[in-house]
Computed example of a mutant assay.
Amino acid sequence: MEIYSGPYLKVNYESDNNRFINSWKSSPNTTNEFKQELLHYLSALEKVNPTQIIWLQQNFTFHIDDPTKLWVEENILKPRFKAGFIKQDKDGYHPIAFVVGKDVLSHMEVMGVFDEPSPSVFNPKHFATEQEANDWLNKEFPYESDSNIRNTEITFKGLDDDGNAIIEFKESPYEISNTLKVIKSIIDENNFIKENIENFSSLTKREKETLQFIIKGKNNEQIAKEMHISLHTVRTHRNKVWKKLQITHLLDCLKYKSFFS
């Protein structure tokens, strides 16, 4: 039964399973369009109160930024969590399933809604196909992943018409959630390096050495001993590192770990 059909989002209801099946007819183009559809979706949730949810992301290409992720958490997820209809299972997951769409980067941002900038109140699972999502919600999921058996294949497929490299990544569909998280961390790290290489390159050799010790968790006294310099010199190096990297907090400093790996 169709519950809602908006410009972009369609919501169907399976009464037998008390389940919403949400699918994107097309992807919103702006943050406002995305938010408006989710507010209509929230109204549908409050009327029906389903206990299970499937999101079909095939046509979803909107990239969700961090402020929007926080908005979703505060205005959509937390109210439903407090309503108490979505219960956590014995493995710590809530009966919310996402089926990955073609735009993998967009789906990574969807995953980020539940992980970044801070953990969400809900813990969903991600699947390669709608059938797998249904099987899991129906408690008929017949697959067990063996972390000791890896059949990953990465193949270079050549260049597209614009000269971009095409890389094909093959992995067990039952590992798709973990695989996407790994890929996202690699992409995020690579983007961080690109965006901050100029600041990092401005550090002197000794400042980089100081930074590396800071990342390893060494305090000023330990750094002074390791580098055979005075505490005053360590403080000078540290202050220059902070200034050149334009950071104010130790957590920002730790992000530069990728430059030493």
Rank of each mutant, 00 (worst) to 15 (best):
H94N: 13
H94K: 03
P95A: 13
A97M: 05
A97R: 07
A97S: 12
F98K: 02
V100M: 06
V100R: 02
G101L: 07
K102S: 13
K102C: 03
K102Y: 13
K102Q: 14
K102E: 14
L105H: 12
S106L: 05
S106P: 03
S106I: 10
S106E: 10
S106R: 02
H107R: 06
M108D: 09
E109F: 10
E109R: 07
G112S: 12
G112M: 03
G112E: 13
G112L: 02
V113N: 08
V113G: 03
F114W: 11
F114G: 01
D115E: 15
D115A: 09
D115N: 15
E116A: 03
P117I: 02
P117R: 10
P117Y: 11
S118G: 04
P119R: 14
P119Y: 08
S120I: 02
V121K: 03
V121E: 04
V121M: 01
V121T: 12
F122A: 01
N123Y: 10
N123I: 07
H126D: 15
F127H: 05
F127C: 00
F127Q: 04
F127M: 00
A128R: 08
T129K: 05
T129A: 02
T129E: 09
E130G: 01
Q131P: 10
Q131W: 06
Q131Y: 12
Q131V: 08
E132Y: 10
A133T: 08
A133S: 05
A133K: 06
A133R: 07
A133L: 01
N134H: 14
D135H: 09
D135G: 00
W136S: 01
L137C: 06
N138C: 01
N138Y: 12
K139I: 06
K139M: 08
E140T: 09
F141Q: 02
F141V: 00
F141Y: 15
P142H: 11
P142Q: 12
Y143L: 02
E144S: 11
E144W: 03
E144Y: 09
E144R: 10
S145P: 04
D146G: 00
D146R: 05
D146K: 06
D146V: 04
D146I: 07
S147W: 13
N148H: 14
N148Y: 13
N148E: 15
I149L: 06
I149Y: 03
I149V: 08
I149H: 00
I149K: 05
R150D: 15
R150S: 12
N151V: 10
E153C: 07
E153F: 10
T155D: 09
K157V: 05
K157E: 14
K157P: 00
G158S: 13
G158W: 11
G158I: 12
L159N: 11
D160T: 08
D160M: 05
D160I: 05
D161T: 15
D162A: 08
G163M: 04
G163K: 09
